[in-house]
Simulated scan of single mutants.
Amino acid sequence: MGKVAFLFPGQGAQYVGMGKEIADEYKSASKVFDEATEALGFDVREMIFNGDDETLKITENTQPTIVTTSIACMQPLLEKGIRPDFVAGLSLGEYAAHVTAGTISFKDAVALVKKRGKYMQEAVPIGVGAMAAIIGLENNDVIECCKEASQVGIVEPANFNCPGQIVVAGEKAAVEKAAELCKAKGAKRAMLLPVSAPFHCSLLKPAGEKLAVELDMVSLNDIKIPVVTNVTGETVTNKDFVKDLLVKQVSTSVLLEKSIRTMLDAGVDTFVEIGPGKVLSGFVKKIDRDAKVLNVENLETLNKALEVLV
Rank of each mutant, 00 (worst) to 15 (best):
D34G: 13
E79A: 11
G136F: 01
G41H: 01
V227S: 03
F33A: 08
K20D: 04
L299G: 10
L245D: 02
K188I: 13
N298R: 12
G136N: 02
G164C: 12
L215C: 07
E54S: 14
V124Y: 06
I66Y: 05
T252N: 05
Q249A: 03
P64R: 03
S196Q: 13
D222V: 11
R261S: 01
G19H: 05
K239W: 08
Q11C: 06
K248Y: 05
V308H: 13
N221R: 12
T301V: 10
E234F: 05
V254S: 01
P198A: 09
L215I: 12
E214C: 12
V142Q: 02
L264I: 12
I66N: 07
A111T: 14
G282D: 11
G10S: 09
I223G: 05
K304V: 13
G275A: 08
G233T: 02
A158D: 08
L92M: 12
V272E: 00
K183E: 14
A187I: 06
S259A: 13
K224W: 00
M263P: 07
V279L: 07
E138F: 04
E307G: 13
I225S: 00
L92H: 04
K115S: 14
T59R: 09
D244A: 14
F160G: 11
D269N: 15
K248P: 07
E25N: 14
V284L: 04
S91Y: 01
I48F: 00
E156L: 05
A39W: 01
E257G: 02
T237S: 13
C162L: 11
F6D: 00
G129A: 02
K285V: 09
G208E: 06
A101H: 09
T100I: 14
A123P: 05
E307W: 00
C146V: 01
P9M: 06
T262W: 04
V152K: 11
N50L: 12
G51E: 05
C146R: 02
K285D: 11
P64L: 00
V250D: 00
D108E: 15
T62I: 06
E46N: 14
R261W: 00
L220G: 09
I135T: 14
A178D: 06
R261L: 11
